[in-house]
Amino acid sequence: MGLRESKKQETRQLISDCGTRLFIEQGFEQTTIAEIAAAARVSKKTVTNYFPRKEDLALDHHEAFTEGLAQAVAERAPGEAPLTALGRTFRTALLEHSPVVGFTGHAFARMVADSPTLTARLRELHDLREEALAAALADAAADPASDPAPDTAP
């Protein structure tokens, strides 16, 4: 990663960290983009360039959340059953306390639960994740190499 890309990642993370802190302290609906920009020492335009919607900032791992399980199925080891790959993915996430699959801590969970906007967006993200996983499982079922029946038949 080059210097420019590294700087962009640092700025994105700083904005995310400041936003999350303010959302937890003040509540999602009560926190403004201007307050987040001031805390991160960037312009409001910079905040919206990185996070077009305020809920994208609060739930900034949304892409990894919606695609993660489908990716685990699609990228599983040859001959590995989809459910085995999913189990491994969940165990790893649990051990790592991964925020991507929901191990965010009490304060963050409370902030989401207290916000009708974030609760609705999280429902949408769950729907997108289920759709992506269903498609990946359908693809896996269509692959004869992943069918355990020939190995288990007498």
Results as ranks from 00 to 15, higher is better:
I33K: 02
L3V: 10
E131I: 14
T32E: 11
E55P: 08
K8Y: 14
F28R: 04
R129S: 03
E67I: 11
A37Y: 02
T20I: 11
A142Y: 03
A107F: 10
A107S: 08
A153S: 15
Q30S: 13
R88T: 12
A64K: 08
R41K: 11
I36Y: 01
A120G: 11
R21Q: 10
V101K: 04
L133R: 02
T46K: 02
L69G: 01
H126T: 15
A142V: 03
R129I: 02
Q9W: 15
A141L: 10
S6I: 11
E29A: 06
D60G: 07
A40V: 03
F23H: 01
A153K: 15
Q30T: 15
A93K: 05
F65S: 00
R41W: 12
G102D: 00
T84A: 06
F65P: 00
E29T: 06
I24W: 04
S98V: 04
K8D: 08
R4C: 11
A141P: 09
H61Y: 15
I15F: 01
D147W: 05
K7G: 13
L57E: 02
T48N: 12
L59F: 05
E75Q: 14
I15L: 00
E131W: 15
F103I: 06
M111V: 06
A81L: 15
G102V: 03
D56Q: 04
A39W: 00
P116A: 09
L133Y: 00
A37D: 05
P154W: 07
H97G: 14
K54N: 10
F65T: 03
H126A: 09
T31A: 02
F90W: 03
C18D: 05
T104E: 09
L57P: 06
A107E: 09
Q26A: 12
K7V: 15
T48W: 07
E75N: 11
R21C: 09
R88Y: 12
A77G: 07
V47C: 05
T46P: 00
R21A: 10
E80G: 01
L59C: 04
P154T: 03
L59W: 00
R110T: 07
Q26S: 12
L3W: 14
F90L: 04
L128P: 02
A72R: 00
A134G: 15
E75S: 09
E25I: 08
R88F: 08
G27Q: 08
T117Y: 06
